[in-house]
Structures are given as structure tokens and as C-alpha cells.
């Protein structure tokens, strides 16, 4: 797990002292050679050798990898979200969805965002509050969607009666539904980070195509 900042130390001073914190993004690609020449390989080795790896936990994906500059891209931002890209790669390699994993392990599947909250936690415990906050964030990211019969979502298949598959699958037009498919996305280690921009966009795009309707509010 990469941190965003390297705790830079120098071997010929006191190695216990962090001299400065240097963004990783300033030390790779074309900047790597200059960084090595300026600071010396021994200092970099010492700094990286002594640094603790990032904790494998939610909302701890390095931000520089979520907004990585890619000047050769022909896009408006010319940057890429590696977290989102990793999710995309997983789908294309056929990694089962989170709920499908649970089903195959014989575990109960989750059907609501609130199922992410551990019910054994006390109402006033900080851990529960943190989980509730995450669920709130998930709702904001995934949100809701209004069914639109006029929107055809695929040309690759038809319904059994040869009608086009529309948005969504026979539910009443105009009904509000939760976007709750792709639970693997919700739980992926790389997903629950501070900046949702491109990740959220990708999820919305995919949710449009792979949606399962699990609840409604209208």
C-alpha cells in the first residue's frame, strides 16, 4: 500500500529524524533521475526502508494514484484514476461480484447498503458511526435512478417477447430505484477512498448496464 508522502531521512544525519515529507508523485517518471541525483540513492533506500506501509483499510487509497497525470491521453482531464482502472480490470477478468463471492462461500448476501454496518456494534460506538458514514457516502455515490422505459440499454439482446431491453427491466416507468448492484465495487479496498470523481463516474456507467433493482422509494 503506497503512501502519498515519503518520510525522507538522511543516513549521515540522524536516521530517526524525518527531514521532510516528499510527495511520491514528485519522485517518479521523468523526475526520478533528478531525485536520485539530488538526494542520493542511500537516502531514498533508507527512507523507504524505514517507512511503514499504508494500512490495508477503507478510504486509504493513495490520492496521487486517483489523479495520475497522463498527458498523452486524449481526454479533457488528461489524468487517470488507477483505483477505478483496477476495478475495471477486475470486471474484465471475470472476478465475481462481491455478493456472488459471498454466495459461493455460503454466506448471506447483502441486500441493502445498511447491511455493511455491523449490527453487533453499539449505537454510540465510534466504529458504528464510521460505518454509518461510509454507508452514507455509498448512497451519495451510487444514489438512485428513475426508471425510463424509453431508454434502450442494449442492442445485443431482446426480451423474451422480442421487445428491446429498456431501463429497467419491466419496472414501472418513472419508478425510483436504488443502484445497488456491483457490491464488489462498494467493498473493494481500492474503492472507498476520499476522492470519488472518476470512480463514481465509472460505477454509474456500469450500474446503468448491470443494474439489479433491490428497493424502491417511489
Amino acid at each position: 500500500m503506497l503512501p502519498d508522502l515519503i518520510e525522507y531521512r538522511e543516513w549521515n544525519k540522524d536516521p530517526n529524524v524525518i527531514q521532510q515529507k516528499i510527495p511520491i508523485i514528485d519522485t517518479f517518471r521523468g523526475k526520478a533521475t533528478e531525485a536520485i541525483r539530488q538526494k542520493g540513492l542511500a537516502n531514498w533506500a533508507l527512507s523507504m526502508g524505514r517507512q511503514q506501509a499504508g494500512e490495508l483499510t477503507l478510504q486509504n487509497h493513495p490520492q496521487f494514484l486517483q489523479n495520475l497525470k497522463m498527458p498523452h491521453l486524449q481526454s479533457s482531464t488528461q489524468q487517470i484514476d488507477i483505483a477505478a482502472l483496477d476495478l475495471l480490470r477486475d470486471w474484465e477478468r471475470g472476478i465475481p461480484h462481491y455478493n456472488e463471492f459471498r454466495r459461493q462461500y455460503g454466506l448471506k448476501q447483502l441486500i441493502r447498503f445498511e447491511d455493511f454496518i455491523d449490527p453487533r456494534l453499539r449505537e454510540d460506538s465510534p466504529a458504528r458511526r464510521e460505518q454509518e458514514q461510509l454507508v452514507k457516502t455509498l448512497r451519495e455515490v451510487y444514489g438512485q435512478h428513475r426508471c425510463d422505459e424509453s431508454k434502450q440499454i442494449t442492442k445485443a439482446q431482446l426480451n423474451n417477447d422480442n421487445s428491446p431491453i429498456n431501463d429497467y427491466l419491466g419496472h414501472p416507468n418513472g419508478r425510483m430505484v436504488l443502484l445497488f448492484q456491483k457490491l464488489n465495487l462498494l467493498c473493494s479496498f481500492s474503492m472507498l477512498h476520499a476522492d470519488f470523481s472518476a470512480t463514481a463516474f465509472l460505477h454509474r456507467v456500469f450500474a446503468q448496464n448491470f443494474i439489479v433493482i433491490l428497493g424502491s422509494s417511489g
Binding site: 518520510e7 540522524d14 530517526n16 529524524v17 524525518i18 524505514r50 517507512q51 511503514q52
Partner: peptide
């Protein structure tokens, strides 16, 4: 031992 002062 020896790294007790390390703020990390």
C-alpha cells in the same frame, strides 16, 4: 532499540 526517538 536505538529508534525510540523516531516520530514514525
Amino acid at each position: 532499540r536505538g529508534a525510540e526517538g523516531d516520530s514514525a
